[in-house]
Amino acid sequence: MIGPMRLPLINWMAPPADAPRAPFLRLSTLWIQITGTWCNLECVHCINASGPADPWLKPVSPEVVRRAIREAEDLGVKEIYFTGGEPFLHAEMLALLGDALEVAPTTVLTNGTLIDEAMADGLAALARRASYSLEVRVSLDDTDPETNDRVRGAGSFSKAVAAIVRLNDRGLLPIVTATEIARAAHAGEGMYERFRGFLMARGIEKPRVKIMPVFALGRLGREGDPRLTEADLAGFDRGLLQCSESRVVGDGGVYACPILAGLPGARLTEGTLKESFADAPLYHPACVTCVQTGMTCKNG
């Protein structure tokens, strides 16, 4: 194991025995943590502190991915998602996307910086062949280049926007995903409408925008961040939490939550998907955000 040194200590804590738990209802969503925390960017708010050097979570082998897809198909999965890190750093990303699309609608979450003309062509060819929808979610944190690049790194804005346009030109209708980290830079202005307007001004006639909250984890996690108690969840329907119907295959096993994947405390099993079908501990400060905002990492 590469080790926890680059992460705040809180991410490595074990779930306390009295942590509230989320029921497991069904496997609707399979997530593949394909590149672990290996990324070509190093965003200040990254939920799992991904970056180019010494990723603390390793990529997953193609064999593990294919086995998970086959098992998920048998279990009646509805959607498959690939995330990382940056998925397009994985040498077999296109082939694995094709395997997933044989089974279910599939989404890939990307920073867009590696989607050049050839990759956009490859994705368009995959989408044309598939019976199920291929969705590409490109992260962008602001419509202003400087504000975006302060969060995501120099040059990331122009590359991501170029990818969005390339995908759109090929009929792929990318979903632009933004966190609320830069909301303060545009006080009083609707973030959603601002992104829609930005995309339409670039000739994107069917703009798709997803807004995500910022989580207190990864590089933003701090010791002492609040955690859930049973009292916090009185009257709350835990079946609404995405961990009640999602499972994540990543290095080291199967996890309940896409953004906690890789953390030892969030691991449900080192075995199969089916062996992970059990209540999940709501032990992490990130769980507070899910409960309070009702957010989901899914497309809709």
Binding site: E73, L75, V77, E79, A104, P105, S131, Y132
Partner: peptide, 21 residues
């Protein structure tokens, strides 16, 4: 059959899921 407002779109409903239903 399991959720009253679950969307079953043609391009987003796997055959494996229909078999299960």
């Amino acid at each position: 059959p399991r959720v009253i407002n679950e969307f079953l779109w043609e391009s987003a409903t796997p055959t494996g899921l229909l078999k299960r239903f």
